[in-house]
Amino acid sequence: MTEEQHFLKIFLHNKKGMAGLIIVLIFVAMGILAPYVTPYSPSYTNPNAFLLPPSSKHPFGTNVLGQDLLTLDFYGARISLIVGISAAAIAVGLGLIVGLFSGYYGGVIDEILMRVVDFFIVIPALVFMIIIAALLGPSTVNVILVIGMLSWAPTARIIRSMVLSIREWPFVESAKANNAGSLYIMFRHIFPNVSSVLYGNAMLAVASAIFTQAALVFLGVGNVTDISWGGIIHEAYATGALDAGDLSYVIPPGFFIFILIFGFILIGYAVEEILNPRLRILKRQ
């Protein structure tokens, strides 16, 4: 059994991890199946039926344009997942490369890269993103890029600290002795040993990207034309539906963001728990 299969086996027995996985899969299904299960088209507007309270025709009521909120809430899963996963992929990819290079080469390269990492960890990312997103103009791709480019530092730091110890292992030494190229050693020998940590980290990165995307759209600097949960909440806030106490407008989208993030956090925490045996709860024998 390879290390990854072994890891997977433990993961499948971890309650938190499985709960998180099920949550995430439900939302994936929600996003994919949205056109088949929702009662209306997301672009269908009805000026005569705006801000309706919940009814059997519109379980969550309608928005200012008379769109069915239940339909929009289902479609909203798409943007959250797409932005969350793509931004996290950029962040984790960048973090992996920086971490591998920094840890493998050490010395001056490491020193410089780590100061850059320190810098990116310290700066107030959300404030940064708000301003850049506002200047770049609203588009989903911009939001993905901004989140991805500003979220890689924690991953780089973790990967680097792992690489520092792995590069001393005998098999890396012997690969060097056999004149294997640095890139080959990094990706062929070192990467497989940091991959499980990377998965846990990637889950947390997705969670944080989903939150950031929703926050940016809520603040009105993301793409408000695409259907997203943050956008629905923004709309409810901007049109005064919140102050009017319109529960079915505000509660479902926020609740979905919350649960989806919770799902990814649970998976990430489970991975961390499996990798750090001290955190694993001792089974009462």
């Binding site: 969670a207 939150f211 929703a214 926050a215 809520f218 943050g230 909440i233 806030y237 919140l242 102050d243 106490g245 529960l247 505000v250 509660i251 989208p253 926020g254 609740f255 963001i257 919350f258 649960i259 993030i261 919770f262 956090i265």
Partner: peptide, 14 residues
């Protein structure tokens, strides 16, 4: 930790 800040605030407002 998972609750979106702005949404929690809005729930309290409600």
């Amino acid at each position: 930790y998972s609750i979106p800040t702005f949404w929690l605030g809005e729930m309290l407002i409600l």
